[in-house]
Nucleic acid binder design. Sequence first.
DNA 1: CCTCATGGTGACAAATATGTCAGTATTAAC
DNA 2: GTTAATACTGACATATTTGTCACCATGAGG
Lengths: 113, 113
Amino acid sequence: MISHKDKEFHTTKDLALSVIGGRWKIALVWALLQNFPLRLNELQKLFPDINQRMLIRQLRELEEDLIIERTVYPVVPPKVDYKLTEIGYSLEPVVTAICTWGDSYHDVLGSDS
Amino acid sequence: MISHKDKEFHTTKDLALSVIGGRWKIALVWALLQNFPLRLNELQKLFPDINQRMLIRQLRELEEDLIIERTVYPVVPPKVDYKLTEIGYSLEPVVTAICTWGDSYHDVLGSDS
DNA sequence: CCTCATGGTGACAAATATGTCAGTATTAAC
DNA sequence: GTTAATACTGACATATTTGTCACCATGAGG
């Protein structure tokens, strides 16, 4: 059994899904794969549909799961940025596979209705 | 906007996640990638932790999303089997990427505590 | 002092996803 | 007539995830 955050998983793919399964997580990882370090307000501009509270929560969870790294600069006004860790960066093939599949799935849906 | 089941998605990856995001869906697709057509009771044996109701619901959703195909044989006792459609089968790279990443993530977790 | 920018937090509400339990239909075999 | 196998369905309870709203702290610049 794999144990993580008080939950138990049978397989590593269940573990993987628990990490990347959040509503906005793949999107956040995707954004961070492209634009290296991003500040909170930059992320808010990239994802106007996520409210700030939710955005922060998803970022915190990704941080707990060691996918991203949060850096606080001791300046005023505050500056904090987020970037992928090594293991986070290694999600690239997953994100790519999902995007690629999503495109072809979208095509399939489009051509049968 | 991509519209599907009354929901709107900005990107195809959000669409993809809405299809494969269920608690057991990747696991089900993974099982069907390996053992071609599977009957309900075979799936129940493969996943003893999913209760029947939930299993059927996930299967129905995958069917609605055109990932799997359900075949009913007009015999008694009833026989029904499930197999991947072509677009469902094309999820293979996604499932593989998730499994591969899950393994390395598991290793990372293991070696830092 | 007042305002602004930035990056937050806490309490709570609503929505969605999961899980549990009991019940249904068919017909063949005993 | 009773049981057994298979594949379900409906009503409901619980858990988990997401969203909303109001609020806080800092220090610079006016």
